[in-house]
Design a protein around this nucleic acid. Sequence first.
DNA 1: GGGTTGACCAATG
DNA 2: TCATTGGCCAACC
Length: 109
Amino acid sequence: MTAPDPEAYVEQVLSLVEQVPPGRATTYGALAAVVGWGGPRRVGAVMAQWGGGVAWWRVVRADGSLPPSHGLEARARYREEGTALLASGRVDLRRCGWWFDPDDADGPG
DNA sequence: GGGTTGACCAATG
DNA sequence: TCATTGGCCAACC
């Protein structure tokens, strides 16, 4: 499986994003690592095209930040979902980081 | 076939 | 914490 169809790749990425529970967030690199295909940039490209149909705000960069264009929109979601935010306006991946691990017992609280 | 761009990541100062 | 640099792979012209 070294040459997956672009369609399957999108389905994989979007499926994983939908698996991220509210109040949590993951990174592009994490998604790329789970799917095992392409890289973080591939995931970003998918989100830019079909990310509008999923909780794209739960997918952030490695430092917990998001594009300024969507930063404002995302912040509104975090406030409703209770996602931990930093004073810099970034997501606190230390507490809300979602790495698709079976041991997701630890929460933001 | 070559140059540029992109919802990125890690290392360095 | 922020800015810079190098690497990565696919899409576009």
